[in-house]
């Protein structure tokens, strides 16, 4: 049995023994004590802090820290960008004062005179109706990140709850497996179309449509892990000792899963953003008046073939890739760090 003892627990036991040997006199050591449950708890949770160790392990990885800061900076910048001086709202069509017509497809870095007489440099150029690509990309990133994070959180919360119940409580397995079979096989497209039919198109609708079905994957993922570990010896032991199911779930199973859950969430965010691109591709995405990375990429896809216009595709793709890479790398690092066995 000892083979399967959790390393963290082993370490804790060692710590306790050392402490006792160091601080207590022989007499005290052999004194009888009244049983005091609060004291049991106290020693059980000594100087080892799971989260502190996790963060310490995480901080040691330079690449992870770099990408994490990149994510933070990206997110911050999407909010700061509109407040910077000399920014043009993403929705505004910029007209040429000479002809009164929009400045279409200006290459990146072009400096032109605006209708109000001021000179403006379009850092990333303009799109085919003269909107500023720079501010469009930031507005798009903001929308897409918002969608990605919100959906990931909803999925995680619902998915974890359902997944644990499904995996641990055998009586529910039948019900949830059937529910999964049913829900997983109802084409998302039907749901998307119907939601789009009932509710006005917009960010909220899209989030709803994506989360309506998205949690199933997470739930099943968790369930499979629970099934794998629920009958491991230490859980058997806990059950034999009469530990209540909620406590086993919270104390035995969840910590084991945290690394996996974190990774899964970190990947779900960019996956959701990518999913938004796909939904836009099949024509069920956000209205094109709302800037999103999906819309930007989809509109610009035809331009991959035109060297002079390719920038309209490349820049949103770069941002999307950066977001994904950042989440992926920092998610992986966090998942490594969150594994208690790595806290050596």
């Amino acid at each position: 049995m000892a083979r399967f003892k959790h390393p963290a627990i082993e370490r804790m036991e060692e710590d306790i023994t050392k402490q006792m040997a160091h601080e207590m006199s022989d007499v005290e050591m052999f004194d009888f004590e009244e049983f005091d449950e609060s004291l049991v708890e106290k020693t059980g949770y000594s100087n080892y802090s799971y989260w502190r160790s996790t963060f310490q392990a995480f901080a040691r990885k330079k690449s992870a820290m770099f990408f994490l800061s990149l994510v933070v900076l990206l997110v911050l910048f999407t909010f700061i960008q509109p407040l910077l001086p000399g920014q043009i709202d993403y929705f505004v069509v910029n007209n040429d004062p000479a002809s009164g017509l929009p400045y279409r497809n200006l290459p990146p870095g072009t400096s032109v005179e605006l209708m109000n007489g001021t000179q403006h440099t379009f850092i990333l150029g303009t799109n085919s109706i003269g909107q500023d690509l720079w501010s469009n990309i930031w507005a798009g990133t903001r929308t897409s990140l918002f969608i990605g994070v919100t959906v990931a959180v909803i999925e995680a919360v619902v998915g974890i709850i359902v997944g644990i119940l499904w995996g641990y409580v055998r009586k529910l397995d039948f019900f949830f497996t059937e529910l999964y079979n049913v829900l997983d096989n109802i084409p998302v497209t039907i749901v998307l179309i119907l939601v789009a039919y009932i509710l006005p198109a917009g960010v909220g609708t899209l989030i709803l449509a994506m989360s309506l079905t998205g949690w199933i994957g997470m739930a099943r993922f968790i369930r499979n892990f629970i099934i794998i570990i629920r009958d491991r010896e230490y859980n058997l032991a806990s059950r034999c000792l009469g530990t209540k199911t909620p406590k086993i779930i919270l104390k035995n199973l969840l910590p084991f899963l945290i690394s996996i859950i974190m990774l899964r969430m970190a990947l779900a965010i960019p996956a959701n953003i990518g999913y938004e691109v796909f939904i836009t591709y099949i024509g069920l995405g956000l209205p094109a008046t709302i800037a999103s990375l999906g819309n930007l990429i989809n509109v610009a896809r035809t331009m991959m073939l035109s060297p002079a216009l390719r920038y309209q595709l490349i820049y949103p793709t770069i941002i999307l890739s950066l977001v994904t890479i950042s989440f992926y790398v920092s998610g992986n690092a966090f998942s490594d760090a969150a594994d208690p066995r790595q806290h050596v």
């Binding site: 279409r104 497809n105 085919s128 509109v299 896809r301 035809t302 331009m303 991959m304 073939l305 035109s306 060297p307 002079a308 216009l309």
Partner: peptide
């Protein structure tokens, strides 16, 4: 998306040139 390139490669005889790329 594909027809314009296929025209350039001589694989087909017709492609609609969308407003986005017509200037180019």
């Amino acid at each position: 998306t594909l027809a314009p390139t296929m025209v350039l490669r001589g694989e087909i005889d017709y492609a609609a040139i969308s407003n986005d790329i017509v200037d180019e």
